[in-house]
Simulated scan of single mutants.
Amino acid sequence: MKALRIVLIEDEPVTARNLAHILEHLDENISIISMLTGVKEAVGWFNAHLHHYDLVFMDIRLTDGLSFEIFKQARVNRPVIFVTAYNDYAIEAFKNNGIDYILKPFNEQEVARALQKFETLFRSAEQVPDGSMFTRLLEQFQASVKSYKKSFLVHYRDKLVPVETVKIAWFYTESEMVYGHTFDGKQYILDFTLEQLEQQLDPQLFFRANRQFIINRAAILEADFYFNGRLSVKVKPEPAERILISKARVPEFKSWMNT
């Protein structure tokens, strides 16, 4: 059987190595011909290798920008399987175009499923998708990407003050009020519930620890083992109340911290 030539575009070395290992384990005919880490590097590679590959596994957020920029600057004329840490994108728009996705953190079964879809839709029929497919993919996907909240306009000493989201260490609710506590120790009342905030905050940066707290990744110092399989998370600045993560949510928290 002809070797399946795959290009990996991933800026996290551990994730890239893990994906390459899974792919090579799934099919001995798979050949990882290039492992790229950023938009600029990928653009240069695709412009120099128009037809020297069969399939691309591509992360969405790279160190130098979104991978969508690659499509604007280079001709990608083979199927792409996106790898993403976001589960709230409207991904169905491009799945109908014969493109699949893998949600981080992934496992071997998910990679195998994506490969099988590629085999069924393209390789078995010896089809090569044209550029218009990827143009439609780019337009549909970008139109569906959720925009996360960058700042909050808050009341502070008879003024309206903009506060950048990344400067908030944790959000906390008490007595039906919601507060945002910044890294420099200031606290603001917010006109949102924690449930509403959870939908507006970047899930890579913020985690819903429990019913009372949403915490910023940058505020976390460590997590200690607590009673009944729970975790006690230490953050800076330190809140008056202990932040506990339930036993059921510990695996999700560990996975989030490990990405």
Rank of each mutant, 00 (worst) to 15 (best):
Q142W: 01
K159S: 02
F192V: 07
W170L: 08
F141T: 14
L190N: 09
Q116E: 11
L221T: 13
V178E: 10
G180W: 08
I220D: 05
L115M: 13
L138P: 00
Q187W: 06
T135F: 03
G180C: 01
L115W: 08
F227D: 09
E238S: 14
L197N: 10
V145C: 13
F225S: 14
T173H: 04
L115C: 14
S151D: 07
T165M: 06
L121C: 13
A240E: 14
V128C: 09
L160V: 07
V145W: 00
E238C: 11
K236H: 07
H155T: 04
N210S: 08
F207G: 03
Q187Y: 01
Q140P: 00
F141A: 14
P203Q: 00
Q196I: 02
Q204I: 10
N228E: 08
I214F: 05
D184L: 15
Y172D: 15
E139R: 06
Q196P: 06
D202R: 06
K234N: 13
H155V: 04
E164R: 14
H181V: 15
R208I: 11
L190A: 11
T182K: 10
R217P: 00
F134L: 15
F141H: 10
Q127D: 06
P129F: 12
E222V: 03
E198L: 04
S175H: 12
V163E: 04
Y156W: 13
T193E: 04
Q127G: 01
A219W: 04
R217K: 10
L194H: 10
Q212D: 07
R230F: 07
F152L: 03
I220V: 15
